[in-house]
Simulated assay, not measured.
Amino acid sequence: MSVRIYLPTTTDVLAQEVVAGEFVVAEGVEPVVAESDDEGDEYAALLTAADASTAMAVERGVAGLRRVVLVFETDAVPVAGAKLPVRQLVSAHVDVEDRDTDSDPDDDLAWFIPSELPHLL
């Protein structure tokens, strides 16, 4: 049985990982798992991961504060240091415009298929 996880990250890390062809669960990053496959639960998991992405961007001093959430289908919830191959990536959700720290946290993110990621960078 597979698990769908929502992995928060930042634009600078995304750029590095797309080039590397795999995604690493960073130390201190908690993948978010939806409580069920209900659309509302999945959306809540996406927004929780988006909030974590903003916090990561602020902590790292990433310009633009664009939220980035990567959605993976995995066999289990990965731990810090786990490598997730691009073949397990289902989609990416990314802000298409820079944000301020006081931007509405409920703003929608744009949805991208994995093959579109190189064009975002």
Results as ranks from 00 to 15, higher is better:
93 H>A: 03
66 R>N: 08
58 V>N: 01
111 W>V: 03
94 V>C: 04
3 V>P: 00
20 A>R: 15
112 F>C: 02
1 M>K: 02
11 T>W: 10
58 V>A: 06
98 D>E: 15
90 V>P: 00
57 A>D: 02
82 A>Q: 15
102 D>Y: 09
107 D>R: 14
103 S>I: 04
76 A>T: 10
46 L>K: 11
73 E>P: 00
49 A>T: 05
117 L>S: 06
79 V>F: 12
80 A>Q: 09
87 R>W: 01
117 L>H: 09
46 L>W: 02
97 E>G: 00
64 G>M: 07
93 H>S: 04
59 E>F: 06
118 P>Y: 08
118 P>N: 09
21 G>S: 07
109 L>N: 04
27 E>Y: 09
69 V>G: 08
112 F>H: 15
118 P>H: 01
3 V>L: 12
48 T>S: 15
22 E>S: 04
8 P>Y: 09
68 V>P: 02
30 E>Y: 04
105 P>T: 01
28 G>N: 11
27 E>K: 11
100 D>W: 07
98 D>S: 07
32 V>C: 07
75 D>Y: 00
21 G>D: 11
44 A>P: 01
75 D>T: 11
118 P>M: 08
90 V>T: 03
48 T>C: 05
92 A>P: 01
29 V>R: 03
92 A>R: 14
84 L>I: 10
80 A>G: 10
94 V>I: 15
61 G>H: 09
63 A>C: 00
4 R>C: 00
118 P>T: 03
39 E>Q: 12
62 V>S: 05
76 A>G: 06
42 E>L: 14
102 D>R: 12
120 L>C: 00
94 V>R: 11
61 G>A: 05
111 W>S: 03
45 A>C: 06
79 V>P: 08
18 V>I: 14
103 S>P: 02
64 G>V: 10
16 Q>C: 02
78 P>D: 06
37 D>C: 06
30 E>I: 05
68 V>S: 03
92 A>F: 05
23 F>E: 04
121 L>R: 13
104 D>A: 14
66 R>G: 01
88 Q>K: 08
41 D>A: 14
87 R>K: 08
21 G>W: 10
52 A>C: 01
104 D>Q: 13
7 L>C: 02
29 V>S: 00
65 L>G: 05
15 A>E: 13
54 T>S: 03
34 A>S: 09
65 L>H: 11
18 V>W: 14
73 E>R: 13
89 L>P: 04
19 V>T: 10
23 F>C: 03
43 Y>N: 01
89 L>A: 01
115 S>K: 15
59 E>K: 11
98 D>Q: 08
56 M>N: 03
18 V>H: 08
29 V>K: 04
42 E>A: 07
105 P>Q: 11
113 I>S: 14
88 Q>F: 04
31 P>V: 07
40 G>K: 13
64 G>S: 05
55 A>D: 15
16 Q>I: 02
27 E>I: 04
13 V>S: 05
28 G>H: 09
91 S>N: 10
